[in-house]
Each structure stands twice: as structure tokens, then as C-alpha cells.
Design a protein around this nucleic acid. Structure first.
Lengths: 114, 114
DNA sequence: ATGTTTATTCTATGATTATGAAACTAACGA
DNA sequence: TCGTTAGTTTCATAATCATAGAATAAACAT
């Protein structure tokens, strides 16, 4: 996938903030996913401290705030930035908050650095 | 190589600016280098429009300013940022301005995204 | 030595970003 | 319905960043 330079700067900018990078890593690394699934993590809205998919994620969405000592609105803002950069997609489905990490983008970055 | 999270944010921040990314790419991709050498580009101080190593680089340091419509001090600042992030190292040697791209860092980023 | 060219550092300023408070929306349960 | 919980949006503000001009330094040619 070939992208305009500004798409890359957007991605790098999204990852240039420590809090956003932590959130992203939490989604990208600390969650096990069923093979073939793109869903990296599911956070229960009511603050269940788990990754609904397969365990491994020790902080649920609502606890990220405490964990990072940031307000809810700030966390929301950071999630939005990660989405705008195309790194993740989020959707709400009833009580569930679903996050997908866009693996294509990761590949794109790696290719970019070749 | 394992680094603190802030080192990664520093790298991503350095690459999050379009001008810096262009400069970095110029050093990283557009210059041919002799096998085994770490030197990615050599810019003549007097504005010779070449990469002293093997050709391929069409803009010398002094022309980057025109090319990007930025002042000399701003370009200097951007080079410094790239250095602070550990992406490149620069040194002056008489009339030559030498830039080395730190390939280890690139590898570190790629490993980071695994 | 003096002037020229080139890059850096310092300083000021306009632009962008990170943050939280408050208002708002959506889902749920009693 | 009404209150609670969860997340978003809007707005204001403090912090950081990008930029250029001026002063400075280093290398060189004359």
C-alpha cells in the first residue's frame, strides 16, 4: 500500500505521545486474539477489568484513566487520534466497546522503513 | 535493543513532521552507499548539488532550504531534532558535512512493531 | 587580516497540541 | 420515568512546536 507522505506523518504523530503509544501497545501487544480475528480487545463498558477475547489485558477502558492519571475526555481524545491516523477502529455495540488494530497500517509502516 | 517508551515517542515525534520526514527519507532512501559503509550522504558545504558518495541525491544541504521553502535556521533545527531522536548523526569535517543514518534505530522500530 | 559563505544558537512569535471541566448523548437498571 | 454509568463533544487554557531573523562561529579564499 502506497500512501502520501502526510499519512505517514499522521501515523508517527499519533504514536509520538506517550499515552497514545501506551494505549496502542496495550491493544497491539498485550491482547491475545483468536486466530483469524481482527478484534484485538473488547472492553466492557461497565469496567470489567479484562480483555473479553482471551485475557492478557489487565486494564479495561474505564481504568485507563486511573492508570494513566488522565481524565476521561482526554483518553477519548487520544483514542480519536489513533483512529484518525488509521491505526485503530473503534465501535460501540450495546455494552461493548470494540477496538480493532489495523494490521495493514503496521505493515505499511514496516514496508516504509525498508 | 530494548529502549524506554519515551525513546520511541521521541523517534516518532521526529518523524511526525513532514519536513523532517522528507529530510530523513532523502538520507535513508535516495542515496546509494558503498556496501558496508554507514555514510548515507555527504553534502559539500559550498552547495555542490550532489551526494558525494555515489550520486542519487539531487539536493545538497544548502538547497534543501529552497526546495522546502524554509529558512536555514529551521533546517538546522530539524537536523538537530533528527539527531536528538538518534535517527541520524551529523559531523562536520572541514568542508564536508557528513550524515550517518542510524540503521540500528530503524531496526529497533521495526522490532518494536512486531 | 578581511570578507564571503555556511551552519548554529538565541530569541520572539504564531500555530498546534494536550488537557480537563462542563455540557451532552447513549445504554441500562430499578 | 428517573438516576447512574460510560463515552463524546465543546470550550478554554497551558504547554509545546515550527518558524524566521539576528547574532555568532567556523572554514576558506583573496
Amino acid at each position: 500500500m502506497i500512501m502520501k507522505l502526510t499519512n505517514y506523518t499522521k501515523i508517527f504523530k499519533a504514536l509520538s505521545n506517550e499515552h497514545r503509544l501506551k494505549i496502542f501497545l496495550m491493544l497491539y501487544k498485550n491482547c491475545c486474539v483468536p486466530e483469524g480475528s481482527k478484534v484485538m480487545a473488547e472492553f466492557h463498558i461497565k469496567g470489567e477489568p479484562c480483555c473479553a477475547v482471551k485475557g492478557g489485558m489487565e486494564k479495561a477502558f474505564t481504568k485507563i484513566c486511573d492508570c494513566m492519571k488522565l481524565s476521561r475526555s482526554t483518553i477519548s481524545h487520544h483514542f480519536k487520534e489513533l483512529q484518525n491516523a488509521g491505526l485503530i477502529t473503534c465501535e460501540r455495540e450495546g455494552q461493548l466497546f470494540r477496538c480493532r488494530v489495523n494490521k495493514d497500517v503496521i505493515k505499511t509502516i514496516k514496508d516504509f522503513l525498508k
